[in-house]
């Protein structure tokens, strides 16, 4: 069940220039992947093309065998009429309810589940939002800066837990943190600054798991590759 993009191009209706030009990649195995690059280069647009939210593009997107593709972002809110725990319980399928408590604990939000969403800090809000997406029946989850405003240690803990708990799922992590994507992602689609012939370059990340140790040398090499590509 690969996720393939072949020569995808897209221009927003009112825009003069295309936001995406001949973007191609192939994610052949589930795992933690990333879209990396500066703001405004088309990461979110490509994510929306993958999930079908943008339909007027050219090129080909192959998602055969992948049932549900979900896109989540860091501006989302939960309704404010009841507390976080009640919302989560209502939107998480019965089969996944057992994992809710584990995620709440790993994500460090167990103290605030009795509060309403607008009473949480931005980092807590993003973590709660991510929990409800993770516990949906989907094959691909795109996380568009879904861990913004979360401290680095907790982010690492969360990424490792996600990799452990959902090994058969595709994750596309949109982030601006080069170190993080280099360390934890399997493949990194680097969006380059405009003016370069090829808009994106696919780079192999270190794909660190819970029990893995990666050498500083390997990490530096990946980082260097990302910097050179961008």
């Amino acid at each position: 069940m690969p996720l393939i993009c072949d020569n995808v191009a897209f221009t927003y209706p009112a825009a003069e220039h295309p936001i995406l030009t001949n973007v191609s990649f192939n994610l052949s195995t589930p795992g933690f992947h990333s879209f990396f690059g500066p703001s405004g280069v088309g990461k979110t647009s490509l994510a929306k093309i993958l999930t079908g939210d943008i339909a007027e593009y050219s090129g080909k997107v192959v998602t055969d065998g992948l049932k549900h593709l979900l896109y989540s972002h860091n501006k989302e809110r939960l309704p404010g009429w009841s507390n976080v725990d009640r919302h989560l319980s209502r939107v998480i399928p019965q089969s996944m309810l057992a994992e809710k408590d584990r995620l709440v604990d790993v994500f460090g939000v167990s103290d605030c589940t009795k509060a309403r969403f607008d009473q949480l800090s931005m980092g807590q809000q993003n973590r709660v939002n991510l929990i409800r997406y993770l516990l949906q029946d989907c094959d691909v989850l795109i996380m568009d800066e879904s861990m913004a405003n979360v401290d680095e240690l907790t982010r690492e803990k969360i990424i490792l837990a996600i990799k452990d708990m959902f090994p058969r799922r595709y994750f596309i992590y949109i982030s601006h943190n080069a170190m993080e994507v280099a360390k934890f992602c399997d493949s990194i689609l680097v969006f380059r600054n405009s003016g370069k012939a090829q808009q994106t370059v696919m780079i192999q990340g270190c794909n660190m798991g819970r029990d893995d140790n990666i050498s500083t040398k390997a990490l530096d090499a990946t980082l260097l590759e990302i910097m050179n590509a961008s």
Binding site: K75, E76, R77, V91, N129, Y133, Q136
Partner: peptide
């Protein structure tokens, strides 16, 4: 949109 997005994409 920031609230409804989740319910739409998950079919709820």
């Amino acid at each position: 949109d920031d609230i409804e997005h989740f319910y739409r994409v998950t079919g709820r």
